[in-house]
Each structure stands twice: as C-alpha cells, then as structure tokens.
Computed example of a mutant assay.
Amino acid sequence: MLASTRRAERRSAFILIAPFLLIYLVLFIYPTLKMLELSFTNAPLIGAGDWVYFKNYVRLFGDRLFKTAVWNTGYFVVLTVVPNVAIGLLIALMVDRLKGWTQSVVLAAFFLPYILPVSVVFLMWRWILDLQFGIAQYPIEFFYGERVPVFRTIPWFLPMVGLITIWWTNGFNVLLFIAGLRNISPEIYDAAAMDGANRWQLFWKITWPLIWPVTALVATIQLILQLKIFDQVYLFSVGGRSEPTMVLVQYIYREAFQRNHGGYAATIATALFVLIAALSVLQYQVLRARGAE
C-alpha cells in the first residue's frame, strides 16, 4: 500500500513538472547545446559551416576587441552592481518608514522608471543630456567648467550609462528590499528599543542580518543583468565610436548580425555564458557564507 502511494505521488509530481521540463529543454538546454556546437565551426548566422574545432577559441584569446569588451563589461559591473544594491536598500529603508498612501505614492514614483521601455529611457536621457538644450548640462557646466557631449566622450560614456541604468532599474531592487523588510517582525524592534538600542544599533544588529538573504539575491540578480548589458550601451553609442565602449553582448551582436560570423559569435556567447555562471555562483556562495557567519 505504501509503495503504491509513493508511485502515485511520483507520477503526480512528474505530471506537474513535465511542462516546465519540456519548456526548459526546448528553450534553454537545446539552444545552449546548439550554441556550443556552433562555436566549433565557421558557420554563418544561418546555414551550415565547416568544423574548425578550437580555432575560434584560440582566436578569442588573441582578440584585442574581445579583451576590450571584457574590460568594459567588468567596468560597467563595478559601476552599477554595488551602487544599485546600496541605493535600493537605502531607499527601501526610507520608504518603509512611511505609512499609508504616502508610502504607496513614493514607492510608485521610484518604481515608475522600471516599467519604461529602454527606447523611452534613451530618448528621455538623450534630451536631458543634450549638448545645447539638455537641462543636465547646466550642473555639468557649473562643476566641470564647460558642457560635455557625454555620449561621445569615452571617459564619460560608461559612467553616465551606468548612472542611467541605476535610475532605470533601481525600483525593482526597492520592491525586493521592501518585501524583505516587511518580513521582519516589529516585535523584535520593540524589544531591542526597550533594551535601549539606538537607530544605528537596530539597523546593524537586526535589520542588516535579517535582510542579508534578500541583499544576496538582489546582488546576484544585478550581477547577471549587468554582465548582459546591451540595450543602453548600443542605443547611446549609435553614431559614435562604438569599439572603445564595446561590451560583450554588443560584440556578439556585431559578429552575428552585422558580420554574419555565427560560429565566432557563438564562441563569444559561450565565453559570456561561462563567465556569468561562474561569477554568479561564486558571488552567491560568498554572500551566503557571509550571511551565515
């Protein structure tokens, strides 16, 4: 009787997860394997090619533009991931102190940019930072001494795109942190306050340890998203010098869709896949270990 019950439970579980497994195999596993296979050929984007084995990978490690793209991608990650997480937590702490409709309005204001499509974000910030008419050029001129075409000036380009990305995506982080903060029982704060804990001690001894799992999750999500950065960099670099500001996904796009080098583009994509998987697992494990201390 017990054995038949277990078989029925396994059958039910398999039926429930079968659609997900099918979709996962068709939309992720199969394309990943095909990408890996394509990386060992000199095939165009569409059509068959000859096997070149590890020739693409040898070329990759000697490719100056690939090294530039890796550097720019890493630089962009440094510019955005930690500031995005820190700003999101700070905003969430402030919003969480509000009550009623005020909290809802403020939270909606911070989340609103996140629902905007990237094309709208591009047009909005291109106007704000326009060299002649942009309102952001006034503070730039005040502090820097002159107006700057930020999207055509290489040292300014990635930091400014990073700033725009933080403004655009931070609302999602705020929502995750708000959810984490609401899971902390107010009774814990009341008990600590009765023992004489000040606001900083409440945060450092209670809020920070209890919010750490959410922080690790947000940091991991941001790392993955920023390693795959493409839209903003591509749009803001249109018409300018794209090679000095090239990132990895943009390089894949150029090799695949503009130069019809499907095999080499798949090689770059494989390298990016391995990089994202390795760094994501490493960061999450480090953050989880830090939270367990």
Results as ranks from 00 to 15, higher is better:
S4H: 13
S4K: 14
T5V: 13
T5W: 14
R6T: 10
A18M: 11
P19V: 06
P19M: 10
L21D: 08
I23L: 13
V26E: 12
F28D: 06
I29D: 05
P31E: 10
P31Q: 11
K34A: 15
M35V: 11
M35L: 13
F40A: 08
T41R: 02
L45T: 15
G49N: 07
V52K: 05
N56P: 03
N56R: 00
R59E: 15
F61G: 10
G62S: 12
G62E: 12
R64N: 08
T68C: 05
T68F: 03
T73V: 07
Y75M: 15
F76T: 00
T80D: 04
V81Y: 01
L90C: 12
V95S: 02
R97N: 12
Q103G: 13
A109F: 12
F110N: 00
F110M: 08
L112V: 15
L116I: 09
S119K: 11
W125I: 05
W127L: 14
W127G: 09
I128L: 13
Q132V: 12
I140L: 14
F142L: 15
F142S: 14
R147G: 03
R147H: 05
V148T: 07
P149N: 15
T153H: 14
I154W: 09
I154N: 12
P159G: 11
L163S: 06
I164H: 01
N173Y: 03
L176Y: 01
G180L: 01
I184Q: 03
I184Y: 04
S185T: 12
A191E: 13
A191W: 07
K205A: 06
I211Q: 00
I211K: 01
W212R: 04
P213W: 04
V214T: 09
V214R: 01
T215S: 05
A216T: 00
L217Q: 04
T220K: 02
I221W: 01
Q222S: 15
I224S: 00
L225M: 11
I229K: 01
F230Y: 14
D231V: 05
Q232K: 11
V233E: 02
F236D: 00
S237T: 08
V238Y: 13
G240C: 06
R241S: 13
E243Q: 13
P244C: 07
L248W: 02
L248A: 03
Q250V: 07
E255C: 04
E255H: 04
A256P: 02
F257C: 10
R259M: 13
A265Y: 00
A266P: 01
T267K: 00
I268W: 02
T270L: 11
L272H: 02
F273L: 09
L275C: 06
L279G: 01
Q283A: 06
Y284D: 03
E293R: 15
